[in-house]
């Protein structure tokens, strides 16, 4: 993997959400999934920015679905995690685990 850059925290969460949602990952569902799993209110715009950025890095790809009436006749844009994205996630997790190893006792009584 070499000198690949690590994912930002929010990028990581968005990427994981897309992964969890599988074939149903689009703007609304990713936003809701983030809210559910993190328990925090995130800005819609931030999600789009992160998805754009991930797409620019080649970590996710997107395709347009069929227009539906409940969305005012507009198509959904579905996202899927690309192999590069999985690699980046793995690298990030690994790096974090290295950092975490052996310091849990440090955090116990603070």
């Amino acid at each position: 993997m070499g000198r690949s850059e690590y994912l930002g925290e929010f990028e990581q969460m968005v990427l994981l959400s897309v992964l969890r949602l599988g074939s149903d990952a689009y703007g609304v569902s990713v936003h809701e999934e983030l809210g559910r799993t993190t328990g925090r209110e995130t800005k819609r715009g931030a999600v789009y920015v992160a998805l754009e950025r991930l797409a620019a890095k080649g970590y996710v790809s997107s395709r347009f679905g069929d227009p539906t009436a409940e969305r005012g006749g507009r198509a959904k844009r579905y996202y899927a995690v690309e192999p590069a994205g999985r690699t980046a996630l793995r690298a990030s997790r690994q790096a974090l685990m290295h950092l975490w190893s052996g310091i849990e006792p440090e955090l116990e009584d603070r």
Binding site: T68, R71, R74, K76, R77
Partner: peptide, 15 residues
């Protein structure tokens, strides 16, 4: 345009 339309759709759905 298509991506903008998708975002508008998202907003129409849950905005």
């Amino acid at each position: 345009t298509p991506a903008a339309s998708a975002i508008a759709g998202d907003l129409a759905e849950s905005g």
